[in-house]
């Protein structure tokens, strides 16, 4: 299982990566903004999921998600953000986001959300 984790905060990436590593994720590829994320995502081969922040410099999470979807990739994408206004949520869903994780969160919530989006291959 390989996950692309996009957040401009190194601290937030560490928190989320710790949660991912406690699950059945083999590899976490980190990026600090949408531009770096697109570069690391490449043709998307091998990636099983994307976790992305919304507010980032250079290319924000919404633009990044649109770019991934416009290229025809169907992997699950979870947005991690403090934005919960209905209009914002609608924008994210329209862009192709599958699920939301609202900051702040505890490890249990993170794990539950991840389990919902990333199927445990050992249970398949």
């Amino acid at each position: 299982m390989k996950v692309l984790l996009v957040d401009d905060s190194g601290v937030m990436r560490k928190i989320i990566a710790r949660g991912l590593n406690s699950l059945w994720v083999d590899e976490v590829v980190e990026a600090a903004d949408g531009v770096e994320a697109l570069s690391k995502f490449g043709d998307g081969v091998g990636f099983d999921m994307i976790l992305t922040d919304w507010n980032m410099p250079n290319m924000n999470g919404l633009e990044f998600v649109k770019a991934v979807r416009n290229d025809g990739h169907k992997l699950p994408i979870m947005m991690i953000t403090t934005e919960t206004e209905k209009s914002q949520v609608l924008l994210a869903i329209q862009a192709g986001v599958n699920d939301y994780l609202v900051k702040p969160f505890d490890q249990e919530t993170l794990q539950k959300k991840l389990e919902r989006v990333i199927p445990n291959p050992t249970l398949a």
Partner: peptide, 8 residues
């Protein structure tokens, strides 16, 4: 996070 939560 604190100000983001307050904004929400």
């Amino acid at each position: 996070i604190v100000t983001g939560g307050a904004k929400r």
